[in-house]
């Protein structure tokens, strides 16, 4: 019994340590507050350890990120300010992320500083932001994001598209402020 518990602890610690940058990063990008993110990350680790016997052994990072997002939704979201989704936001028809006639300017995106991208991301409405974080930063599949956020895959796809569109607009605004862009589009 004791050996089993000790073995569990070692296995958990090994996996949790590997996933901890993702846990903290996701917590930070969801809460947008260092203090709250640290609390959230610690609590997620504790909850995960307490529930480790129920982990199915498939994908530890996806499993623990589900704990992070659930904790965030239940505990921290009510205190958060910033743009929230309403049903209309989700139902609006999707438009392409890129503008018509626009050639993507990878060089311009490269010009952006990490802090600017993080800031632009933090301006994306919460549920869209969550989809972008889990997909583009954590590299999770639509199915895994669907499991974590408890929404159908179709909703994950549309949230991701909307999140990227919002991120693009936000980055564009930064680019304009910094003088990378003179007018409203990337290739001006």
């Amino acid at each position: 019994m004791l050996f089993k518990r000790r073995g569990n602890r070692e296995a958990f610690e090994r996996e949790a340590e590997r996933a901890f940058p993702s846990v903290l990063g996701t917590a930070l990008r969801l809460t947008r507050s260092k203090e709250e993110a640290e609390d959230l990350a610690q609590e997620a680790i504790v909850r995960a350890y307490e529930a480790y016997e129920r982990f199915d052994g498939a994908n530890f990072k996806a499993w623990i990120l589900r704990i992070v997002t659930n904790l965030y939704i239940n505990k921290y979201r009510q205190r958060q300010r910033g743009p929230m989704l309403n049903s209309l936001d989700e139902e609006n028809a999707l438009e392409p992320v890129a503008d018509e006639q626009e050639a993507p300017d990878r060089a311009l995106l490269d010009e952006m500083l990490s802090a600017q991208v993080e800031e632009a991301l933090s301006r994306v409405p919460e549920d869209f932001r969550m989809a972008v974080i889990l997909s583009d930063i954590e590299g999770l599949s639509y199915q895994e994001i669907s499991d974590i956020t408890n929404v159908p895959i179709g909703t994950v796809r549309s949230r991701l598209a909307r999140g990227r569109m919002a991120l693009r607009k936000s980055l564009e605004s930064f680019a304009r402020e910094e003088g990378y862009l003179n007018r409203g589009t990337w290739d001006d």
């Binding site: 940058p21 993702s22 990063g25 890129a98 995106l109 991208v117 991301l121 583009d136 930063i137 990227r164």
Partner: peptide, 24 residues
């Protein structure tokens, strides 16, 4: 236009991944 859209999504994804690194 579809090509632009595809390349833009790819660029944006790479940018986000590179500019939002995870640290221990």
């Amino acid at each position: 236009r579809s090509t632009a859209e595809f390349l833009y999504i790819q660029s944006l994804t790479v940018t986000v991944r590179e500019k939002c690194p995870q640290s221990m």
